[in-house]
């Protein structure tokens, strides 16, 4: 469990960071909170020649909730997000999801950008951010590029980022109508566990507050990447909450139909599906009821 020798740089700004990373190509790794990377290096799962730490680029940790675009710096830690009062008001689903990651110590160190870049199919931040239609602002020596989170993941542990390209910030559009969201996570113990199934349900009412203008379902640990369940979402959009509540059982079946989980030591595929269905029902019930209550 010893880490192989490597070259370490603490980049002083973003430009320097991406420059260094692109010079080494695939042999370089960006270091944020380190909770995934250092572990992978100990296990020799990755053997970078060069590690470029981003910790000195403090502006990358900023959280800006002022405009219609909520901007979350990639280096914001899970603890910072979970405790952010404005985020708790506007996108509570995100705060709730990241507060379930790892332990206090891990949340104090691990970052939202790192969680996404690590691209675990079960990443707790991914399902709610997918449900919030998040966009990633990435940067590389050739400039900034916006990537919708929905097209970011390319497989378990894989993304479409190329060497030298890193996540700079995450943009979420402020919900226009009244909205509510809920994330439920299947764990084998009450803390310090990976999600065996994560269900994010986010819904937004039209300006009149009558119909569901937007419904989004994000799923973690249920497919090779975090996914949405667009068919299930379509079954609810345009309905009133009362109508939607009645449709929950059939929508839940459509949610499960969108998944393709694996059997492993942590849970069987059948159990993941069973729980995802139950979690969806519970999350939808809670969210739609709260929107009804006004």
């Amino acid at each position: 469990m010893r880490i192989k020798p490597f070259e370490y740089h603490a980049a002083s700004d973003l430009r320097e960071a991406v420059q260094m990373l692109s010079e080494e190509g695939a042999d370089a790794r960006a270091l944020a909170g380190g909770t995934d990377l250092v572990l992978a290096m100990k296990h020799k799962a990755v053997l970078p020649k060069k590690v470029v730490s981003l910790h000195r680029i403090t502006e990358m940790a900023a959280i800006n909730t002022e405009g219609d675009e909520i901007k979350i710096g990639a280096l914001a830690t899970h603890s910072e997000l979970a405790a952010h009062l404005e985020l708790q008001k506007v996108v509570p689903i995100l705060c709730q999801a990241v507060s379930l990651i790892g332990s206090w110590q891990i949340r104090n160190s691990a970052t939202i950008g790192g969680n996404l870049a690590h691209a675990s199919p079960a990443a707790d931040s991914a399902a709610p951010l997918l449900a919030l239609d998040a966009t990633l602002v990435t940067t590389s020596p050739s400039g900034d590029e916006n990537i919708p989170l929905a097209s970011f993941f390319s497989g378990p542990g894989a993304t479409i980022l190329h060497p030298g390209q890193i996540i700079k910030e995450i943009i979420i559009l402020r919900p226009q109508g009244r909205s509510s969201g809920r994330y439920l996570k299947l764990m084998r113990k009450r803390a310090v566990d990976l999600s065996q199934a994560g269900v994010a349900f986010q819904a937004e009412l039209d300006p009149a507050g009558e119909k569901l203008a937007k419904v989004a379902i994000g799923l973690g640990g249920m497919a090779p990447t975090p996914i949405r369940a667009p068919e299930a979402e379509g079954m609810l959009e345009g309905l009133s909450c009362a109508e939607a509540l009645k449709k929950i059982p059939s929508v839940a079946r459509a949610v499960v139909a969108a998944t393709s989980p694996i059997d492993d030591i942590r849970a069987s595929a059948a159990y993941r599906k069973l729980v995802a269905e139950a979690f969806f029902k519970q999350a939808a019930q809670e969210v739609l009821t709260s929107l009804t209550a006004g």
């Binding site: 113990k189 009450r190 803390a191 030591i265 942590r266």
Partner: peptide, 26 residues
């Protein structure tokens, strides 16, 4: 929760990620 799983002669969960012990919250 605690269970050492042997699969094809190997301990399949020789770590605290998958060998679960209760936390204070449990």
């Amino acid at each position: 929760m605690e269970n050492m799983v042997t699969n094809k002669g190997k301990v399949a969960n020789a770590n605290f990620l998958d060998y679960l012990i209760p936390t204070a919250l449990d």
